[in-house]
Amino acid sequence: MRIVAEHLSYTYNAGSPFASKALKDISLTIEEGEFFGILGHTGSGKSTFVQHLNALIRVPSSMKKYKPKKPKKGEVLPPKTVLTVGEFDLTHKKTDFRALRSKVGMVFQYPEAQLFAETVKDDVAFGYKNFAKEKPKAEEIEAAVKDALEIVGLNYEEIKDQSPFDLSGGQKRRVAIAGVIVTRPEVLVLDEPAAGLDPLGKREIMELLHKLHREWCKTVVIVSHDMDEISENCTRAAVFSEGEIKYVLPPSELFAHSEELLSLGLDVPLTAKLCAALKARGVEISCDFTTEDFIRSVLALRR
Protein backbone atom coordinates (compact mmCIF):
# COMPACT_ATOMS: atom_id res chain seq x y z
CA MET A 1 0.00 0.00 0.00
CA ARG A 2 1.32 3.36 -1.04
CA ILE A 3 1.05 6.22 1.43
CA VAL A 4 0.36 9.67 0.00
CA ALA A 5 0.01 12.87 2.00
CA GLU A 6 -0.43 16.29 0.44
CA HIS A 7 -1.06 19.64 2.13
CA LEU A 8 -1.55 17.95 5.49
CA SER A 9 -1.75 20.30 8.47
CA TYR A 10 -2.66 19.69 12.08
CA THR A 11 -3.12 21.97 15.09
CA TYR A 12 -3.46 20.69 18.64
CA ASN A 13 -6.04 22.42 20.86
CA ALA A 14 -7.17 24.55 17.97
CA GLY A 15 -8.90 27.72 19.10
CA SER A 16 -7.60 27.71 22.68
CA PRO A 17 -4.70 29.59 24.27
CA PHE A 18 -2.74 26.32 24.12
CA ALA A 19 -3.09 25.93 20.36
CA SER A 20 0.06 24.65 18.72
CA LYS A 21 0.69 23.84 15.09
CA ALA A 22 2.15 20.35 14.84
CA LEU A 23 2.07 19.91 11.08
CA LYS A 24 2.32 22.74 8.59
CA ASP A 25 1.15 21.83 5.10
CA ILE A 26 3.35 18.80 4.61
CA SER A 27 3.49 16.51 1.58
CA LEU A 28 5.12 13.08 1.56
CA THR A 29 4.83 9.86 -0.42
CA ILE A 30 6.01 6.51 0.92
CA GLU A 31 6.12 3.79 -1.73
CA GLU A 32 5.01 0.22 -1.15
CA GLY A 33 7.94 -1.96 -0.16
CA GLU A 34 10.04 0.77 1.44
CA PHE A 35 11.84 0.58 4.77
CA PHE A 36 11.21 4.21 5.50
CA GLY A 37 12.78 6.31 8.25
CA ILE A 38 11.25 9.32 9.97
CA LEU A 39 13.63 11.62 11.83
CA GLY A 40 13.14 14.60 14.04
CA HIS A 41 13.07 15.83 17.59
CA THR A 42 10.27 15.49 20.09
CA GLY A 43 7.76 18.08 18.96
CA SER A 44 8.93 18.11 15.34
CA GLY A 45 5.57 16.76 14.18
CA LYS A 46 6.79 13.26 13.34
CA SER A 47 4.54 11.49 15.87
CA THR A 48 1.55 13.56 14.77
CA PHE A 49 2.19 12.55 11.18
CA VAL A 50 2.60 8.89 12.01
CA GLN A 51 -0.60 8.81 14.07
CA HIS A 52 -2.50 10.04 11.03
CA LEU A 53 -1.51 6.89 9.16
CA ASN A 54 -3.92 4.67 11.04
CA ALA A 55 -6.39 7.39 11.90
CA LEU A 56 -5.52 7.73 15.57
CA ILE A 57 -5.49 11.37 14.60
CA ARG A 58 -8.18 12.11 12.05
CA VAL A 59 -8.18 14.61 9.27
CA PRO A 60 -10.97 17.09 10.16
CA SER A 61 -12.88 16.39 6.94
CA SER A 62 -13.26 12.72 7.93
CA MET A 63 -15.08 13.56 11.16
CA LYS A 64 -18.84 13.07 11.41
CA LYS A 65 -19.47 16.62 12.56
CA TYR A 66 -17.40 18.21 9.82
CA LYS A 67 -19.10 20.72 7.60
CA PRO A 68 -17.12 22.12 4.68
CA LYS A 69 -16.50 25.86 4.96
CA LYS A 70 -18.01 28.06 2.35
CA PRO A 71 -15.46 30.55 1.09
CA LYS A 72 -16.22 34.19 1.75
CA LYS A 73 -16.14 36.52 -1.16
CA GLY A 74 -12.62 36.90 -2.46
CA GLU A 75 -11.24 34.35 0.02
CA VAL A 76 -8.89 31.74 -1.40
CA LEU A 77 -9.35 28.33 0.25
CA PRO A 78 -6.18 26.47 1.20
CA PRO A 79 -5.30 23.62 -1.19
CA LYS A 80 -7.18 20.38 -0.57
CA THR A 81 -5.63 17.92 1.88
CA VAL A 82 -4.87 14.49 0.45
CA LEU A 83 -4.17 11.51 2.68
CA THR A 84 -4.41 8.01 1.29
CA VAL A 85 -3.04 4.67 2.42
CA GLY A 86 -3.49 2.20 -0.40
CA GLU A 87 -7.15 2.30 -1.37
CA PHE A 88 -8.18 4.02 1.87
CA ASP A 89 -8.99 7.72 1.59
CA LEU A 90 -8.41 9.12 5.08
CA THR A 91 -10.02 12.46 4.34
CA HIS A 92 -13.40 10.87 3.70
CA LYS A 93 -16.15 10.31 6.27
CA LYS A 94 -17.29 6.98 4.86
CA THR A 95 -13.90 5.29 4.93
CA ASP A 96 -13.80 2.02 6.89
CA PHE A 97 -11.32 3.10 9.52
CA ARG A 98 -11.38 -0.25 11.32
CA ALA A 99 -10.33 -2.04 8.17
CA LEU A 100 -7.61 0.58 7.75
CA ARG A 101 -6.29 -0.05 11.24
CA SER A 102 -6.03 -3.77 10.61
CA LYS A 103 -3.93 -3.00 7.54
CA VAL A 104 -1.67 -0.41 9.18
CA GLY A 105 -0.05 -1.82 12.31
CA MET A 106 1.22 0.68 14.84
CA VAL A 107 3.89 -0.16 17.41
CA PHE A 108 4.26 2.64 19.93
CA GLN A 109 7.35 3.58 21.91
CA TYR A 110 7.84 1.11 24.78
CA PRO A 111 5.03 -1.09 23.38
CA GLU A 112 5.34 -3.48 26.34
CA ALA A 113 3.25 -0.88 28.21
CA GLN A 114 0.19 -2.10 26.29
CA LEU A 115 0.34 -5.69 27.60
CA PHE A 116 -2.66 -6.47 29.77
CA ALA A 117 -3.90 -10.04 29.42
CA GLU A 118 -3.29 -12.98 31.76
CA THR A 119 -1.39 -14.99 29.19
CA VAL A 120 0.82 -14.15 26.25
CA LYS A 121 -1.56 -16.06 23.98
CA ASP A 122 -4.58 -13.95 25.03
CA ASP A 123 -2.68 -10.73 24.68
CA VAL A 124 -1.57 -11.46 21.15
CA ALA A 125 -5.07 -12.68 20.26
CA PHE A 126 -6.61 -9.36 21.36
CA GLY A 127 -6.07 -7.53 18.09
CA TYR A 128 -6.95 -10.56 16.00
CA LYS A 129 -10.32 -10.94 17.71
CA ASN A 130 -11.04 -7.22 17.59
CA PHE A 131 -10.52 -6.95 13.87
CA ALA A 132 -12.23 -10.19 12.85
CA LYS A 133 -15.36 -9.55 10.81
CA GLU A 134 -17.14 -12.61 12.19
CA LYS A 135 -16.35 -14.34 15.44
CA PRO A 136 -13.21 -16.36 14.61
CA LYS A 137 -12.89 -20.06 15.48
CA ALA A 138 -10.55 -21.04 18.28
CA GLU A 139 -8.25 -22.87 15.84
CA GLU A 140 -8.01 -19.82 13.61
CA ILE A 141 -7.05 -17.63 16.52
CA GLU A 142 -4.50 -20.13 17.74
CA ALA A 143 -2.93 -20.46 14.30
CA ALA A 144 -2.67 -16.68 13.88
CA VAL A 145 -1.18 -16.20 17.36
CA LYS A 146 1.28 -19.03 16.83
CA ASP A 147 2.48 -17.57 13.52
CA ALA A 148 2.85 -14.09 15.00
CA LEU A 149 4.80 -15.28 18.04
CA GLU A 150 7.06 -17.45 15.94
CA ILE A 151 7.93 -14.77 13.43
CA VAL A 152 9.06 -12.49 16.26
CA GLY A 153 11.37 -15.27 17.38
CA LEU A 154 9.55 -16.73 20.37
CA ASN A 155 8.77 -20.37 21.01
CA TYR A 156 4.98 -20.64 20.96
CA GLU A 157 4.64 -23.76 23.10
CA GLU A 158 6.99 -22.43 25.74
CA ILE A 159 5.59 -18.97 26.02
CA LYS A 160 1.88 -19.10 25.21
CA ASP A 161 0.59 -19.73 28.73
CA GLN A 162 3.04 -17.52 30.59
CA SER A 163 2.00 -14.19 32.02
CA PRO A 164 3.38 -11.42 29.82
CA PHE A 165 4.46 -9.60 32.98
CA ASP A 166 6.88 -12.37 33.95
CA LEU A 167 8.93 -12.08 30.77
CA SER A 168 12.23 -10.26 30.30
CA GLY A 169 12.27 -6.79 28.77
CA GLY A 170 13.25 -7.95 25.31
CA GLN A 171 10.67 -10.77 25.32
CA LYS A 172 7.91 -8.37 26.39
CA ARG A 173 8.72 -6.12 23.47
CA ARG A 174 8.54 -9.05 21.06
CA VAL A 175 5.19 -10.16 22.45
CA ALA A 176 3.90 -6.60 22.08
CA ILE A 177 5.06 -6.49 18.46
CA ALA A 178 3.43 -9.89 17.84
CA GLY A 179 0.20 -8.42 19.23
CA VAL A 180 0.29 -5.78 16.50
CA ILE A 181 1.36 -7.86 13.51
CA VAL A 182 -1.09 -10.68 14.27
CA THR A 183 -3.58 -9.11 11.83
CA ARG A 184 -0.97 -9.25 9.06
CA PRO A 185 -0.84 -5.53 8.38
CA GLU A 186 0.63 -4.45 5.06
CA VAL A 187 2.20 -1.37 6.58
CA LEU A 188 3.99 -1.55 9.93
CA VAL A 189 4.80 1.71 11.70
CA LEU A 190 7.13 1.65 14.71
CA ASP A 191 7.98 4.55 17.00
CA GLU A 192 11.50 4.16 18.42
CA PRO A 193 11.36 0.36 18.29
CA ALA A 194 14.74 -0.06 20.01
CA ALA A 195 14.35 2.58 22.74
CA GLY A 196 15.63 1.58 26.16
CA LEU A 197 17.14 -1.72 25.05
CA ASP A 198 20.76 -2.68 25.57
CA PRO A 199 22.99 -2.76 22.47
CA LEU A 200 22.42 -6.45 21.88
CA GLY A 201 18.67 -6.04 22.27
CA LYS A 202 18.76 -3.15 19.83
CA ARG A 203 20.55 -5.21 17.23
CA GLU A 204 18.10 -8.09 17.64
CA ILE A 205 15.09 -5.82 17.21
CA MET A 206 16.52 -4.32 14.01
CA GLU A 207 17.15 -7.81 12.68
CA LEU A 208 13.57 -8.71 13.53
CA LEU A 209 12.26 -5.69 11.62
CA HIS A 210 14.18 -6.72 8.51
CA LYS A 211 12.76 -10.20 8.81
CA LEU A 212 9.24 -8.79 9.13
CA HIS A 213 9.88 -6.55 6.14
CA ARG A 214 10.95 -9.54 4.07
CA GLU A 215 8.30 -12.00 5.12
CA TRP A 216 5.34 -10.30 6.70
CA CYS A 217 4.68 -6.58 6.11
CA LYS A 218 5.40 -4.99 2.75
CA THR A 219 6.16 -1.53 4.05
CA VAL A 220 7.96 -0.68 7.28
CA VAL A 221 8.13 2.86 8.65
CA ILE A 222 10.35 3.54 11.66
CA VAL A 223 10.51 6.73 13.70
CA SER A 224 13.94 7.11 15.26
CA HIS A 225 16.42 9.49 16.83
CA ASP A 226 19.23 7.10 16.18
CA MET A 227 20.96 8.14 12.96
CA ASP A 228 23.00 4.95 12.80
CA GLU A 229 19.75 3.01 12.83
CA ILE A 230 18.50 5.08 9.87
CA SER A 231 21.72 4.99 7.85
CA GLU A 232 22.12 1.25 8.23
CA ASN A 233 18.55 0.21 7.55
CA CYS A 234 16.38 2.61 5.60
CA THR A 235 15.69 2.96 1.91
CA ARG A 236 14.72 6.60 2.39
CA ALA A 237 14.19 8.95 5.29
CA ALA A 238 12.20 12.13 5.92
CA VAL A 239 13.51 14.78 8.29
CA PHE A 240 10.84 16.61 10.28
CA SER A 241 11.53 19.91 11.97
CA GLU A 242 9.01 22.30 13.51
CA GLY A 243 6.07 20.77 11.71
CA GLU A 244 7.69 20.81 8.29
CA ILE A 245 9.58 18.27 6.23
CA LYS A 246 13.11 19.45 5.48
CA TYR A 247 14.43 16.51 3.47
CA VAL A 248 13.18 13.28 1.93
CA LEU A 249 16.22 11.39 0.66
CA PRO A 250 17.94 8.03 0.74
CA PRO A 251 20.48 7.94 3.61
CA SER A 252 23.38 7.96 1.14
CA GLU A 253 22.31 11.44 0.00
CA LEU A 254 20.70 12.66 3.20
CA PHE A 255 23.83 12.43 5.31
CA ALA A 256 25.82 14.37 2.76
CA HIS A 257 23.87 17.27 4.33
CA SER A 258 25.54 16.66 7.69
CA GLU A 259 26.03 20.31 8.48
CA GLU A 260 22.41 21.23 7.84
CA LEU A 261 21.24 18.31 9.97
CA LEU A 262 23.50 19.35 12.81
CA SER A 263 22.20 22.91 12.58
CA LEU A 264 18.67 21.53 12.97
CA GLY A 265 19.93 20.07 16.25
CA LEU A 266 19.91 16.53 14.87
CA ASP A 267 22.72 14.06 15.06
CA VAL A 268 24.40 12.35 12.10
CA PRO A 269 25.60 8.75 11.87
CA LEU A 270 29.10 7.86 12.98
CA THR A 271 30.13 7.20 9.39
CA ALA A 272 29.09 10.74 8.40
CA LYS A 273 31.11 12.15 11.30
CA LEU A 274 34.12 10.13 10.23
CA CYS A 275 33.74 11.27 6.61
CA ALA A 276 33.53 14.91 7.73
CA ALA A 277 36.58 14.51 10.00
CA LEU A 278 38.49 12.89 7.14
CA LYS A 279 37.46 15.60 4.71
CA ALA A 280 38.82 18.19 7.15
CA ARG A 281 42.12 16.33 6.88
CA GLY A 282 42.00 16.34 3.11
CA VAL A 283 40.71 12.80 2.62
CA GLU A 284 37.56 12.52 0.52
CA ILE A 285 35.51 9.39 1.04
CA SER A 286 32.49 8.56 -1.05
CA CYS A 287 30.24 5.98 0.57
CA ASP A 288 26.55 5.42 1.23
CA PHE A 289 27.12 5.91 4.99
CA THR A 290 26.54 2.29 5.94
CA THR A 291 29.30 0.88 8.13
CA GLU A 292 30.26 -1.81 5.64
CA ASP A 293 30.46 0.56 2.70
CA PHE A 294 32.52 3.00 4.75
CA ILE A 295 35.03 0.30 5.65
CA ARG A 296 35.19 -0.84 2.03
CA SER A 297 35.75 2.72 0.79
CA VAL A 298 38.49 3.42 3.32
CA LEU A 299 40.32 0.20 2.54
CA ALA A 300 39.96 0.90 -1.18
CA LEU A 301 41.72 4.23 -0.69
CA ARG A 302 44.81 2.53 0.60
CA ARG A 303 45.14 0.03 -2.15
Binding site: L274, L278, A280, V298, L299
Partner: peptide, 26 residues
Protein backbone atom coordinates in the same frame (compact mmCIF):
# COMPACT_ATOMS: atom_id res chain seq x y z
CA UNK B 1 40.11 -1.82 9.17
CA UNK B 2 42.82 -3.70 11.06
CA UNK B 3 41.59 -6.97 9.56
CA UNK B 4 41.76 -5.32 6.13
CA UNK B 5 45.43 -4.62 6.78
CA UNK B 6 45.25 -1.01 7.82
CA UNK B 7 47.47 0.07 10.68
CA UNK B 8 44.99 1.89 12.93
CA UNK B 9 44.89 1.56 16.72
CA UNK B 10 41.80 0.67 18.75
CA UNK B 11 39.99 3.85 19.63
CA UNK B 12 36.48 4.97 20.40
CA UNK B 13 37.20 8.58 19.48
CA UNK B 14 36.17 9.30 15.91
CA UNK B 15 38.45 12.35 15.53
CA UNK B 16 41.39 10.21 16.50
CA UNK B 17 40.38 7.43 14.13
CA UNK B 18 40.05 9.94 11.27
CA UNK B 19 43.51 11.26 12.13
CA UNK B 20 44.98 7.76 11.97
CA UNK B 21 43.19 6.85 8.73
CA UNK B 22 44.43 10.10 7.16
CA UNK B 23 47.99 9.13 8.16
CA UNK B 24 47.64 5.68 6.61
CA UNK B 25 46.27 6.81 3.27
CA UNK B 26 48.41 9.85 2.60
Amino acid sequence: LQAGGMDVPDTLDYEKLAEEIAKCVS
